[in-house]
Amino acid sequence: MSITEQKAAAGMELQSQESTYLDAINQALREAMEEDSRVFIIGEDVGVYGGAFKVTKGLFDKFGAKRVIDSPLCESGFIGAAVGAALMGLRPVVEVQYADFISCGWDQIVNVAAKIHYRTGDPVPLVIRAPSGAGLRAGPFHSQSPEGWFAHTPGLKVVAPATPFDARGMLKSAILEENPVIFFEHKYLYRRLKERLPKEAYEVPLGKALVRREGNDVTVISYGAMLHKAIEAAEGLAEKSISVEVVDVRTLTPLDRETLVGSVKKTGKAVVVCEDNFSYGVAAELTATISEAAFEYLDGPIVRIAPPDTPIPFSPPLEDAYLPQVVDITAAIEKLARY
């Protein structure tokens, strides 16, 4: 846990068992459903089967078929239905089996859910959970990081937690939101991260970035699975007396520009690391934000590290070449520090 999380958790008793990132999401769903009967889950194979990744495991037995709904295979259909239920006062949590499949429900998200409040003022309390990200040898259709598409759409909130603590707390916040939230959970992290979480319910607010590691020479900005590579690179560089600050974006929309810019004003140098591909992506937005708001504090070019503009390849050597690796991040930081 980070410093801020420890503070947030101060006074909270911790569970005796460690929870994975996946367990954390399950806990948030369970809590939200216990607290509010308007919350229900809909998606493919989420009920009896417990979800393709078992995120909803046990919820069907506890809450029944009415609240954990196995839908036919129709992303547009069930996302649209969730919007209708939300407009009628329920609080649906949709599971899209893989974030890659979210494009099958594209119109319901960007033209229906996102554009209601601006016109009518009606709240749309809807959460769409989407397991995203590469690194699992899953190829072009089960590895994408499409968060940029949605971050570009006004009316949606877009979040991408990097730790079990954040995954649980931010999903709770997302379910309490009155706006549509696209919740990108990085599936590479599902079972790789573990930590002891608070026993009692808590929320991590949306729209707040977090300084995960303090440093003075270079700021690295990242989120999701790439954040962990950025931290690893930062720790390695400490041995070379390069002091790296790492900022976790956590929420893409609304973006906490103040925290990002504040860190870069301190260090004067910035590296942005994203899993979304290079051009016209999240990294471009973060870079532009820094150059506009911190130009007179910059002591070097802003560096973007992101995968190339290609589909995500399947074969291990290709996928490894595609994804930014710790050595790539380390080299970029080192070069910028020397500049």
Binding site: C74, A81, A82, G84, A85, L87, N111, D122
Partner: peptide
């Protein structure tokens, strides 16, 4: 208050019905 893409509100109406039944 519907949208131009048709029939995007067919699933939405089904969802409203889901809420009534729920």
């Amino acid at each position: 208050t519907t949208v131009s893409m048709l029939p995007d509100f067919y699933p939405v109406a089904a969802g409203a019905a889901l809420a009534f039944k729920y």
